[in-house]
Design a protein around this nucleic acid. Structure first.
Lengths: 241, 241
DNA sequence: GCCGATTGGGCTAGTCTCAGACCATTGAGG
DNA sequence: CCTCAATGGTCTGAGACTAGCCCAATCGGC
């Protein structure tokens, strides 16, 4: 934690892997966060390759890998494309242990801390900013959609709600950081059973977050998000123990 | 800001450039943030290449470019290495305009928002955590060092103080995000003249941040950081207008 | 039933990047 | 003064990645 800690931070790896691996990771993020919903279609390869800044060859390798792994169904011809077949697994303690073993306990703590910081920071920033009618409406709509969700759609719409907060700040960097943070723990969150008590509790907290943001109270917004995320983190820790 | 916003966020470029460009950027970050201070030496090429996860050839190209650009002085032989010759430029409005034109106003707002969110989030998290004696001491030492700094060292130690907050959370991801956020605006901050009034004001705010963290008051810590950063952001905006 | 637009599938030549080995230079210490 | 360890400088062959082009399949609409 001395001077050398900063060296570790700044001189960390430039690349997290080769282009293929990073692409697989990114597509998996889009799928698991529900950015492309089950049954939905990825953009055409040519367009997607440009967006991701990689060649079509590499993109196709990644798509092929995800297709082989059962995440995607690729169809040729007009109105074809890569369709998402992935469905979040049923909550299960075994899956959770598997997921936490894949990353290690230190990495998990890192990810949870990161998520807590960026999401509460985002809410704080958003509450401090001027929100026009359209943005207020969007936030409320996302909340309504989440509250109306069935169990199948809950995780996806929960993610959509949380990410909307970061997106509404107008900072692409912040939105990307929140999406990244969320995807790092999504496998674990998916493993937690969705009990009605927890959902009810979450709904109250979501409401408190939106209220604080719309009221323009940054501290209340930050606190509300922190409490909410601490709740799920505690649930997770308890579930793993 | 609708559904497609999330597609933009998640399906953003996988690579910010080729390995050479990203390496130059990273080394520049280490230099400009003062992680390797003026006169200091970068780690040996072989070690640095491993840390950055790139080949020595690519690393050497990057070092060569920075050497040509006057940031580094490379010396051969035992006790040789790449020494930092860069000195932060004198504060100057022309430099500032140049820097802001290099990134565009939208990108600047993005970076400032990102910095605000991650740094206040980090302070909030740190204040909420248990701090042992060593960590408290480190935080206070950084503050003392900053207060004792001359004008030459002020920016560097200011950065060191702020980054320490993120590092102390124990989250490498969060520390990296804060370092990234800071490096995005460092050129601009360097362009702001350091007036004694501003330094005095900053010292009071730094003290408030540390007090809130040590008192274990997340909301006060988040607020203190937000006020502090908003202050410098406002200074920046006024300076550019 | 054919046409054309859209989309995935595949190939090639060229560039970037890497791992590893070997060479050249420097300066502290014997 | 010589030696030797640490460090930058250079080369090479192999693999990864890219841009661009053309082929193949599919389906709506004429």
């Amino acid at each position: 934690m001395d001077e050398s800690a900063r060296l570790m931070t700044v001189l960390r790896p430039v690349r997290a892997g080769n282009a293929f691996e990073e692409t697989v990771e990114r597509l998996l993020q889009a799928i698991k966060l529900g950015v492309v919903p089950p049954g939905g279609k990825l953009p055409p390869e040519r367009e997607l390759a440009v967006r991701l800044g990689i060649s079509r060859v590499t993109l196709r390798e990644a798509i092929r890998a995800l297709s082989d792994a059962g995440y995607l169904d690729v169809r040729r011809g007009r109105y074809g494309g890569a369709f998402v077949t992935y469905r979040p697994p049923e909550p299960d303690a075994g899956t959770a242990r598997q997921a936490v073993n894949a990353m290690g306990p230190g990495e998990l703590a890192d990810a949870l801390t990161f998520r807590l910081a960026v999401e509460s920071g985002a809410a704080q920033v958003l509450a401090a900013s001027e929100l026009d009618a359209a943005k207020r409406e969007l936030l409320l709509r996302r909340l309504d959609e989440l509250n109306a969700a069935g169990l199948d759609d809950y995780r996806r719409l929960d993610t959509a709600f949380h990410l909307s907060i970061a997106e509404l700040t107008g900072s692409g960097l912040l939105a990307a950081a929140c999406a990244d943070a969320r995807s790092r723990v999504s496998d674990l969150l998916n493993a937690i059973p969705m009990l009605q008590v927890n959902l009810d509790h979450a709904a109250v907290q979501h409401r408190a977050i939106v209220d604080a943001i719309l009221a323009g109270d940054p501290e209340a917004a930050g606190r509300a998000v922190a409490e909410h995320l601490e709740g799920t983190a505690a649930l997770l820790r308890g579930f793993l123990a």
